[in-house]
């Protein structure tokens, strides 16, 4: 699957889509593929401040528990409540309906710490071997 060009990616396999000063974040196709069947998502609390690189959510498959690290810093202004009943949305549409949270991003310079789609593709292919 193509990793969309307009997104930025972290080494921990999160993505961020910046629209104005609102960052939508989720986990990548590669991440959900590694986790396989996602059965539970612990969402961040609305109104909570998250920091780039710090744990913000938890994703569980049948056999594993994985932290999701926020790719940007800011205040959580919206969470994807649909994931409570349909955690598999992350498997089905990691870059769409499977988004996790919207963050009011304070510092756009943080995006410089993230990878482009091309760089992320390379990073993933190196991780695999």
């Amino acid at each position: 699957m193509e990793n969309p060009n307009e997104l930025k990616y972290s080494k921990e396999h999160e993505w961020v889509r910046l629209e104005g000063d609102i960052a939508t974040v989720g986990v990548t196709y590669f991440a959900q593929k590694q986790l396989t069947d996602i059965v539970f998502v612990e969402l961040p609390e609305k109104g909570k401040n998250v920091e780039q690189g710090k744990q913000m959510a938890v994703i569980e498959s049948v056999k594993s528990v994985s932290d999701v690290f926020s790719p940007v810093s800011g205040e959580v202004i919206e969470v994807n409540d649909k994931l409570k009943d349909n955690p598999e949305l992350i498997n089905n549409e990691p870059y769409g309906a499977g988004w996790i949270a919207k963050i009011k991003a304070v510092n756009k310079d943080e995006l410089n710490n993230l990878m482009s789609a091309d760089d992320y593709d390379k990073f993933v292919s190196e991780t695999k071997h």
């Binding site: 396989t36 069947d37 498959s61 056999k63």
Partner: peptide
């Protein structure tokens, strides 16, 4: 092997 396809399907 922990799974071939995924745990739920195999279960």
């Amino acid at each position: 092997p922990v799974f071939y396809s995924n745990v739920i399907d195999e279960h």
